[in-house]
Design a protein around this nucleic acid. Structure first.
Length: 586
RNA sequence: GCGCCCGUAGCUCAGUGGAUAGAGCAUCCGCCUUCUAAGCGGGAUGUCGAAGGUUCAAAUCCUUCCGGGCGUGCCA
């Protein structure tokens, strides 16, 4: 919001400069006005290097352009948002220093927006995010967990940024893996009935299936004929697994709007339809008894089989049908989240989409790298059931949902995660997940304490609350209405530069939530919000160290309580995006 | 071989073509009468994997090379 205000000012200044003949150009600035946060304090609170970019276009020295813009910016004035000073600096930067009035106006704006602070305006667009999409043949491992948390956080983020989001799980409930499940479960069942059968050599581990077979026998004990065919038993068991996956995902706050069955595509003849559509567009051919996609001419490294010589369709053919269905549902954008070990399938899927005559640019694939588990920096393999693969529920049991969500959401999907189990359990600043929650709890604590009696250190007696319940209600009501309520938040820079710096830093950090949301949504990286949240926690801590909220001065107390409310709100909003709880006490 | 991802402080990682490349951990030195010390402040720490190129300006864009991970089925 601050960046926008500055951008508007520069734009206006540019137009005035053109109008008055200082710049020989059209009224619209030909370069993007990019406002940055300088790393060095002496470069102001915000800076803009547009003069450097304009040098060639205007045929003037960058420094000259900067100075001209500075003069016109001063003419533009404050336009109601509070004051700032501008400096032109070598080699042509514009450096902006915000005034106290500007800063307290920021708090006021956050206060007015309340819960919706940082929320993007609805863009009227629909997006489908498909993720996890595991086989219903077992549990979910930590890699599924990474995709689940990324998908869910991305959904929260995009929805907050103004998209209409649909989250979907594509159930891979047919094909070779499912047949294997059915065979294994049926063998297990036969054994339970006392028959001597050979357990499939490459089958799923009997000990993991056994409880599910027991469950099926219990459920169908009045009508065991339902279990008499391997296929039927497989259908029952795979639904158990799917339901377990759903339950586990719900326990980490991952909730799907839609569960799409691969089998339903076959039943409804959609796979054949998709194949026919690709044929009609002349992107297929028969060879060696199989049915092929001309993938190579659509950008893949070689052609791909759609229907095997056995007559069965490949996963690619099924994916074609599924994606055709997605396209028909009219989304503006579709995102698939896959493990990076599947990246080889990307060109095939893109080829299929083109062969169906759809726009491949509407389909975005996010690939996630692997999750390594560590304990005190050393690699661990902890799974009881699967040997080398670490299961999501085991990690969840050990460190809890909040830590799982934070660490899996925080990372850049392109990088492998080194998830340290001991770190995730720490209750200290080393553990950002904890530290952010603690910051939120601290805000709540201060707000609570404001309305409680407190010990007077001089008299040793209890004093009445600094802020009575009536006053607290007044503050909450004024919060968002009284523009000048926050004017007392800041110390004078000359009296207490440390305190002023911390106050300013916190306020500016809070103000950037809308920019952070917009940028994170644009690059589809909810992890940026997680890291931003940690930075707020650090800034709050610093503020807390150097400037008291609750004091004898009621106007300062009121003012700073407003800042604490604003901080609590921004922390709550960011935690909600990454799906971590915001506790009031810890 | 080919394709994708990665290479930034001792470690884990940020970094939008812009000013002196940043955080946290670890390490060293300080700091607890006060709203939660579950903490805070301050040092020190770099061939941004390498070399070319584009640019007024490159960790960032392009090319080549080196190192690591993954993939490369009529499996999913």
């Amino acid at each position: 919001m601050v960046k926008e205000a500055i951008e508007v000012k520069i734009k206006k200044a540019y137009q005035m400069a053109v109008d008055e003949g200082s710049f020989q150009s059209d009224r619209d600035c030909p370069e993007v006005i990019f406002i940055e946060k300088p790393k060095t304090e002496s470069h102001g609170d915000f800076a803009c290097g547009v003069s450097l970019k304009l040098a060639r276009h205007l045929k003037l020295a960058p420094m000259k352009i900067a100075e001209t813009l500075k003069n016109y910016i001063e003419k533009v004035g404050t336009n109601g948002s509070g004051a700032m000073t501008v400096e032109a600096a070598q080699p042509g930067f514009l450096n902006f220093q915000l005034d106290k009035s500007f800063l307290s106006n920021i708090i006021f704006q956050i206060a007015s927006a309340g819960e919706s602070f940082g929320k993007g305006k609805s863009n009227g667009k629909k997006i489908l995010i498909e993720y996890v999409s595991a086989n219903p043949t077992g549990g979910l491992h930590i890699g599924h967990g990474r995709n689940a948390i990324l998908g869910s956080s991305l959904a929260n983020l995009l929805s907050f940024a103004g998209w209409h989001v649909v989250q979907e799980f594509y159930i891979n409930d047919c094909g070779e893996q499912i047949n294997k499940l059915a065979r294994s479960a049926f063998a297990c069942y036969q054994k339970k009935l006392g028959k001597t059968v050979e357990y499939p050599e490459d089958g799923y581990p009997e000990e993991s299936l056994s409880p599910y077979v027991d469950k099926a026998m219990e459920e169908y004990k009045s009508d065991p004929s339902k279990l008499e065919k391997a296929e039927d038993l497989g259908d029952i068991i795979k639904e158990y697994f799917r339901a377990d996956q759903e339950k586990l995902l719900l326990s980490v706050g991952v909730k799907f709007d839609s569960w799409f069955s691969e089998t339903s595509l076959h039943k409804d003849g959609k796979v054949e339809e998709a194949l026919a559509q690709m044929s009609s567009l002349n992107y297929t051919y028969d060879s060696e008894g199989a049915f092929w996609l001309k993938a190579k001419e659509l950008g893949d490294e070689r052609d791909r089989v759609l229907k095997k010589s056995t007559g069965a369709t490949t996963y690619l053919a099924n994916d074609a049908a599924y994606h055709l269905n997605k396209y028909k549902r009219g989304f503006d954008l579709m995102v698939n989240i896959w493990g990076a070990d599947h990246h080889g399938q990307v060109p095939g899927l893109k080829a299929v989409v083109k062969a169906l005559g759809e726009d491949p640019d509407k389909l975005e694939l996010l690939l996630t790298q692997i999750v390594n588990l560590n304990r005190d920096g050393k690699p661990v393999k902890m799974s009881k059931r699967m040997g080398t693969v670490v299961m999501l529920d085991e990690v969840l049991d050990e460190v809890g949902a909040d830590a799982v969500r934070y660490y899996l959401a925080e990372s850049n999907p392109n990088n492998p995660i080194n998830f340290d189990l001991e770190l995730a359990k720490k209750t200290s600043k080393d553990n950002p997940a904890f530290y952010i929650q603690y910051a939120h709890a601290r805000c709540c604590s201060i707000l609570r304490r404001a309305g409680e009696e407190y010990l007077d250190s001089e008299t040793g007696k209890m004093n009445p609350p600094r802020v009575t319940p009536e006053q607290m209600r007044e503050i909450e009501q004024a919060y968002g209405k009284d523009e000048h309520m926050f004017d007392f938040t800041f110390d004078n820079e000359s009296d207490n530069p440390e305190a002023f710096a911390a106050q300013k830093k916190l306020v500016l950090r809070l103000s950037s939530l809308p920019d952070e949301v917009e940028e994170a949504a644009r690059v589809m990286q909810p992890g940026r919000i997680a890291r931003y949240s940690y930075e707020i926690a650090c800034d709050l801590q610093r503020f807390y160290e150097v400037s008291r909220v609750l004091s004898e001065d009621l106007s300062v107390t009121r003012s700073r309580l407003g800042l604490i409310m604003a901080t609590r709100q921004v922390l709550a909003n960011t935690l909600k995006i990454i799906g971590v709880s915001a506790p009031e006490r810890m």
